[in-house]
Amino acid sequence: MLEGSLRDFSLDEVLQMVSMGEKTGRLELKGETPFGKKEGSIFFKNGEVIDAQTNEYAGEPAIVDLLNIKEGYFKFVPEDVSHVKRSVTKSIPDLVLLATSKLDEWEKIKNKISSVDSVFKLSTEGIPDKIHLSPTQWKIISLLGKGLTIREVALKLNMTVIDVSKDVYGLVALRILKEVGEKDPNKGVMVRRRGAPRSFIIRLFERLRRL
């Protein structure tokens, strides 16, 4: 068994050790990502990644989530994985690259979307005359329109929060969606509201008139 803190070994180093040693078993990971605490397992067969599982996702989205852990713990447990169905075919360097590029995308997305717990409203003001939307974007719009957060939509569609955020970024740029606030992911209640109450704007109108 291989066990330790990601302060002492980077996740890249741990993956290399398992891969180079052609190990078979389960790598348990637990720690902080830019999207909150994550916990899950990556399954290896002869040093190759075959599947992953978190509380939220399975397969590639789960790996992307787990590879974004920067601070936390790991434990490699050698065990038989013949019961695990292969869902991942990418090599470890490709998976690391994928996770890194998704994190880079998130850095850009953050300009328009402040959090994966953001809530949106549909808007029709100022949208272009013709818009082409993919089936996935339709699903995302429909779920966000019901008041779900990006995180909740990602769970429903088994997509990573970054992939959903990327689509949302485009929809916000097209002015189809507008961020209106943020929910507490644990309590499911709105904790931050963007903008101002309508009554404030009306009073400001009146105040300007009197100036």
């Binding site: 003001e125 002015r175 101002a196 309508r198 704007i201 109108f205 300007l208």
Partner: peptide, 22 residues
């Protein structure tokens, strides 16, 4: 001043129509 008030009034109208108001 009246001109500046006019600009801000127009902006408030836009905020009501396009902005984050609840």
């Amino acid at each position: 001043k009246e001109s500046v008030k006019g600009v801000l009034t127009k902006l408030l109208g836009l905020i009501l129509a396009q902005g984050n108001v609840y």
